[in-house]
Amino acid sequence: MIDFRYHIVSLISVFLALAVGIALGAGPLKETIGDTLTGQVQALRAEKEGLRTQLDETGSDLAAEEAFVSASGERLLAGTLTDRRVALVLVGEVPEDQVTDLTERFAQAGATVSATATVNDTWTDPALTTYRRTLAGTLVSYLDEPPASDAGTDTELAEALVAGLVGGDSASPDGLSENASSLLDVLAEGDQALVTFTEDVTQPADAVVLVAGATPEAGGPAATTEETPAGLDPQLALVAAAERLAQGVVVAQAAPSDDSLVAAVRGDDELGGVTTVADTTTVSGQVTVPLALAADIAQQPGHYGYGDDLTVLPPAVQLPPVDRSPALPDAGAGAGDVPDATGDAGDANPGGEG
Rank of each mutant, 00 (worst) to 15 (best):
P204Y: 06
D206R: 12
P204M: 10
V201T: 11
F197I: 01
Q203G: 09
A160Q: 01
P216A: 12
L183I: 03
L194K: 02
D191W: 07
T215R: 10
A180R: 02
L184D: 00
V186N: 05
S170E: 15
A222Y: 05
F197M: 01
D191M: 04
G190D: 04
A151S: 15
V211I: 15
T153E: 10
V209L: 12
G168A: 14
P221G: 08
A214T: 15
G175V: 11
A160M: 10
D174I: 12
V166K: 03
T224N: 08
S181G: 15
L194Q: 01
A171Y: 07
A205I: 07
L165C: 03
A212L: 12
A171F: 14
T202D: 13
T153R: 08
D174Y: 10
A205H: 04
L184M: 08
L194G: 01
P216H: 12
T202M: 10
A212S: 15
L210A: 05
A158F: 07
G220P: 03
A151Q: 06
A188V: 02
A180K: 05
A207V: 09
D185G: 07
V162Q: 06
T196C: 05
V186Y: 03
Q203V: 10
A180H: 11
P173W: 05
G190K: 07
Q192C: 07
P173N: 08
P204D: 10
V201S: 05
P173V: 03
D174A: 14
V162M: 05
S172W: 13
T202C: 11
T196D: 06
S170P: 14
G152V: 09
A218T: 15
L183R: 00
L161G: 01
A158Q: 09
S170M: 03
T224R: 13
D206H: 14
F197Y: 15
T215Y: 06
P216N: 12
G175I: 07
A160E: 02
A163W: 01
